[in-house]
Design a protein around this nucleic acid. Structure first.
Lengths: 120, 120
DNA sequence: TATGTAACTTGCAAAGTACAAGTGACTATG
DNA sequence: CATAGTCACTTGTACTTTGCAAGTTACATA
């Protein structure tokens, strides 16, 4: 999907977000997760290749930035950009709709992990 | 995707909405479209088999109801249920985000077609 | 030396998507 | 009356994406 399907803002948004995994990764980022293993540990059990692919796409789309928090071996953290953070209202309305129509669903708590300092 | 991936409301919503086409069909329904050819005529050029499949899924998920507007041959119209209409805030926030980050995108106008009367 | 961990990558089968063409039941036109 | 057109789909086939398991690289720890 590299060409432009239409000039509709919804269509353009879905070209980035329209699959079963991308918004879940963004949800995790909003919840405070930053590292590969943290995303993998979410209960939906995303496959590692799908996760790697989605993180790459999110970076390419400017929703996420990646920076090393350690060298030798290089380890990366992922953080939402302003554009990525702008999706919160979308997630919020989805949560409202989801909670109304799927009884028993609950919003996950924010993770508040201590991250090591980053040496540039 | 028939099992439950998790108890997250976003995940459950994405199990229905998480692809490149479903929310576009819902957008068309919100805009007032009801018939097969109308959905097909949208600028994104959805394939007819994908459209048929999505309409079936939407009906199965309770977002849309189908009723005949003509017999011999039977022709059907699709209308959003209350649950389906509840997605408007999601579309609205997507539009806001899309318009902000994809310059030049424009919201499509509502169609206001005269539909024939339905004989039950 | 052996095991473990983090962040990926690779291989392959299964599922989903895109495009074209076909179907059945009519309606309209020459 | 025969032909063409419309509507709402369905079918067939090729291509792409996804899901699962296993492998890789570069360390850290026992």
């Amino acid at each position: 999907m590299s060409f432009k399907r239409s000039c509709c803002p919804i269509t353009n948004a879905l070209d980035i977000l329209g699959d079963k995994w991308t918004l879940l990764v963004i949800r995790d980022l909003v919840l405070g997760k930053r590292r590969y293993q943290e995303f993998l540990s979410s209960p939906e059990n995303i496959a590692s290749n799908i996760l790697a692919n989605r993180l790459k796409q999110l970076e390419a789309s400017g929703l996420v930035t990646r920076h090393a928090y350690q060298h030798n071996p290089a380890r990366y953290e992922y953080v939402l950009t302003k554009k990525g953070k702008g999706l919160r209202p979308v997630l919020d309305t989805l949560i409202v709709w989801g909670q109304k129509h799927f009884p028993g669903t609950v919003v996950f708590p924010r993770v508040n992990q201590r991250y090591g300092s980053v040496k540039p």
